[in-house]
């Protein structure tokens, strides 16, 4: 079944890079943060495919979970500053 695993990896990699591009390019900060959470989420499935369940669980609980929550807590405190420095490009 290694071809199945290879195909899965490809789809996951494409999804992850797409999400990363959204995270960098999108003008709205909440969406950028959400996209970076999605990158972590997909990365954690990728870790599982790479036979690293420990890392997958850490990434799911910490990288995708707590980091995103921290970002949103901070974002709720800086309302009004989301668009700062976005005047170029």
């Amino acid at each position: 079944m290694s071809s199945l695993i290879n195909g899965m990896t490809l789809v996951l990699c494409v999804t992850m890079i797409g999400a990363a591009l959204v995270a960098i390019r999108d003008k709205r900060l909440p969406i950028a943060i959400l996209a970076s959470g999605l990158v972590s989420l997909i990365a954690s499935i990728l870790f599982l495919v790479l036979a690293a369940p420990d890392v997958a669980m850490t990434e799911a609980a910490i990288g995708s979970g707590l980091t995103t929550f921290l970002f949103f807590f901070v974002l709720a405190r800086v309302r009004g500053g989301e668009q700062d420095g976005a005047d170029h490009d």
Binding site: D54, A56, M57, T58, A61, I62, G65, L66, F69
Partner: peptide, 25 residues
Amino acid sequence: YVFVNGHLTPGGGFQGGAIIASGML
């Protein structure tokens, strides 16, 4: 469960701690 079974299953103190913090959240 995640941190008590850290030596048998994937997981451990750091993951379990993160989950507990999520519960607090």
